[in-house]
Amino acid sequence: MSTDDLNSPEYKDKIPEELQGTVAITTLDRIYNWGRRNSLWPMMFGLACCAIEMICTAAARFDFARFGMEVMRSSPRQADVMIVAGTVTKKMLPQVVRLYNQMADPKYVVAMGACASGGGPFKEGYNVVSGIDKYLPVDVYIPGCPPTPQALIYGLMKLQQKVDKQSIKEVYSNAGKEIPIPVLGPDIMDPRDYEKIREYTLKKAEAEAQAATAAESAQSA
């Protein structure tokens, strides 16, 4: 049953007449989401340029306290929205994933700006993660470089809409799942990819050896 059905006369009329002025009916999902939606606490977590726009959004002119988001928590344990504001680098990635793991369920990730969404102008860089969604589940992507505070608020409103549509069951179905923390090797390594990496490097070594012998034989000939 969708929550909108509750407004239909079929349900409304079931309330006794003398109580109609004082009783409202709703679903558990709806009232639960109403509470969650209006108290999304972002983590105080800035990575790069976008973080400055995030601070401006929190400041007097745009003031996202109007959405119940003014309590920016420095500790991930007390936050439920991670606004990935800026370029995620490989060196920072293990920390970002760890912070995500430490957040309380249900948690949301907003990729703010081009860099967090898909690498942005720095995508080709050797130390840049091209999109945080390769490692974390992202709920809302906000394009722009950087998105203006109003664009950020629009994105956060989109997130609120998403929260509104979730059911409690859905929200907690993923609870407690931890994402394996990437390891800094010769390049960043996702522990889930180890097998693949081994295959790839073996193949690469073989190809190199072949090329070397080919060059040698060409030289001797």
Binding site: G118, V140, Y141, I142, P143, G144, A151, G155, K158
Partner: peptide
Amino acid sequence: DYELATYDRHRDN
């Protein structure tokens, strides 16, 4: 137009 936030960048961006 800055109101471009989406749920799926692979489809929309």
